[in-house]
């Protein structure tokens, strides 16, 4: 069979199919990369303040509709997520970490663990996070939170049997300026203590 008269149709068809494939692939890649543009970064922490307002961009809307989450409103506070420690190494439940203050000004804050899809991590303590009120503080108000599978004295969060986890830092009623880059030194450090 001579395909030569149809060569242009074949090329058009393959351009279409390849285009659809590349387009959908680009969509999947961009939706897995975060909540669109205008992120706020401070050390290992990232927040997307505009996802809590009416000027949310189309990428963030697509991500949120797909994950099914209801983000924090912009006038309520800011939710920061850390997927890596302060040295940039991805968080792994095989390792032990220490979260060390300071924290930016806020009426309340909470620090909690979750899996990368935002689900709580089953663990024997049934504690999933600390708030600014119930965290144990040293003299002077400083605190540390240990993240480890094995029990620790003081503030301890366990990732349980999970392989990966993220740390969520939520600041409620915070005066933090979302228009300028925050000072990383005013945010908690996540220090790796060692790996199993």
């Amino acid at each position: 069979m001579d395909l030569k008269p149809y060569a242009n149709y074949l090329r058009a068809a393959s351009a279409m199919i390849a285009g659809v494939g590349i387009g959908l692939f680009a969509t999947i890649l961009s939706l897995n990369a975060g909540y669109g543009f205008n992120s706020l970064r401070a050390g290992p922490w990232t927040a997307w303040p505009h996802i809590g307002g009416a000027d949310i961009d189309p990428y963030a809307r697509a991500v949120i509709s797909r994950s099914g989450e209801a983000p924090l409103g912009r006038d309520q506070g800011l939710a920061f997520i850390a997927r890596a420690d302060s040295n940039g190494a991805p968080l792994s439940a095989e390792c032990e970490y220490r979260i060390i203050d300071p924290l930016p000004a806020a009426r309340f804050w909470t620090i909690a663990l979750a899996n990368p899809h935002g689900r709580l991590l089953a663990n024997p303590t049934e504690r999933y996070g600390y708030s600014s009120v119930d965290v144990l503080r040293k003299e002077g108000g400083a605190f540390e939170i240990d993240v480890a599978r094995e029990a620790r004295p003081g503030n301890w969060l366990s990732p349980g049997a999970a392989k990966d986890f993220v740390v969520m830092l939520r600041l409620y009623d915070t005066p933090l300026d979302i228009e300028s880059a925050p000072d990383p030194d005013s945010f908690p450090k996540i220090v790796k203590l060692g790996c199993a």
């Binding site: 994950s67 989450e69 983000p71 939710a79 909470t110 909690a112 899809h117 935002g118 709580l120």
Partner: peptide, 8 residues
């Protein structure tokens, strides 16, 4: 019920 909610 929803992901990424604060457990507190």
């Amino acid at each position: 019920t929803l992901p990424f909610e604060d457990p507190a």
